[in-house]
């Protein structure tokens, strides 16, 4: 029977395949071992450093400086480990503990590095710097974050905007309001969430957005007004529902009014239930259906006979008493 290849060639190929398999197995084994060694080394390091970070986090003022000594002398992997633990904790704590962890990061040199990385040519580094500056209790961080909120990179702008909200500082509000227009390139949901995080300081400022020329600003303002309990929100929302040119703003106003449950808004909602825009009609009727029946009995009875089936369905969502 004729053979396709001479036996010597087949033999060489088999030997080569065997060697390649053995080399692959050895490489995989070595890589797994190396990963395991690295993992256990990191675990030992974390076990050594974590208690020091925890102690510093809850230290009283007079004991804090002593707790920080160990971080000032840290280098390389140990320092990065301490930074990572302290940064992770900062997402969940406020008050004195946040201040103490900021001192830990300062002792590790993290804050100095983050500030210098705000001007890095690499967007990922600028974004990481913004993330850290938003976590710490460090007033000077705000000016860097406001600058990064206008960065050329979309990603950096979004991270800096979120960080401004998380900082919870009144100085951050101007930067957040500047990010509201759609031209900022920062998604409205990011700016809105950031303003909500800083609600304590943003409530009064948010009201100004109702008269902005940019519909994206007016819509975000209408959404936020009920969440942050912006002063004077109800009459502004009623006016937006009745007069805004942009249906998305009117829908947002109707939903905000639904959250606020304001009796004064019933006539405007009833009027909006006959709007030309079906989204506005449904949002207004849905809002009316959630109000106490004593306020809306008549208008809902009327809307239950509306020619639009969606309106009839929305009006019937809540049974009318009596």
């Amino acid at each position: 029977m004729p053979t396709l290849f001479p036996s010597s060639v087949v033999f060489v190929v088999l030997i080569a395949c065997t060697i390649a398999c053995v080399v692959a197995i050895v490489l995989v084994t070595v890589m797994r071992l190396a990963r395991r060694v690295r993992g256990s080394r990191l675990q030992r390091l974390t076990e050594r450093i974590r208690p020091a970070v925890l102690q510093a986090a809850v230290a009283e003022q007079d004991a804090l400086d002593n707790s920080l000594t160990v971080f000032r002398s840290m280098r390389g992997r140990a320092r990065r480990n301490a930074e990572s633990i302290a940064t992770r904790m900062l997402y969940d704590v406020t008050g004195e503990t946040r201040t103490n962890l900021t001192y830990v990061l300062a002792a590790c040199g993290t804050i100095t590095r983050a500030v210098s990385r705000t001007t890095s040519t690499v967007p990922v580094r600028r974004a990481r710097a913004a993330e850290i500056l938003g976590l710490i209790d460090y007033p000077d961080a705000i000016s860097h974050l406001i600058r990064l909120a206008q960065d050329e990179s979309d990603e950096v702008r979004a991270v800096a905007t979120r960080a401004l909200g998380r900082s919870g500082r009144p100085e951050a509000i101007a930067g957040l309001l500047a990010a509201l227009p759609s031209s900022s390139g920062v998604p409205a949901v990011v700016v809105g969430s950031a303003l909500l995080e800083a609600a304590e300081h943003s409530a009064a400022a948010i009201g100004r957005g109702f008269t902005d020329s940019d519909p994206a600003v007016r819509r975000t303002t209408a959404i936020l007004a009920s969440h942050v309990m912006s002063p004077g929100a109800t009459p502004r929302l009623i006016r937006a529902l009745a007069t805004d040119d942009e249906p998305l703003v009117r829908i947002a106003a109707a939903r905000s009014i639904m959250r606020l449950q304001t009796r004064d808004a019933v006539p405007a909602l009833y009027e909006a239930a006959s709007s030309e825009h079906s989204g506005v009609r449904i949002a207004a009727t849905t809002a009316l259906a959630t109000f106490p029946p004593a306020w809306t009995h008549e208008v809902l009875t009327d809307l239950k006979h509306h020619p639009d089936v969606d309106i009839r369905r929305a009006a019937s969502a809540t049974p009318i008493e009596g």
């Binding site: 986090a57 809850v58 997402y91 969940d92 704590v93 406020t94 008050g95 004195e96 503990t97 946040r98």
Partner: peptide
């Protein structure tokens, strides 16, 4: 609620 102050 988190974030929280351990002192509080």
């Amino acid at each position: 609620t988190k974030p929280f102050s351990p002192r509080a």
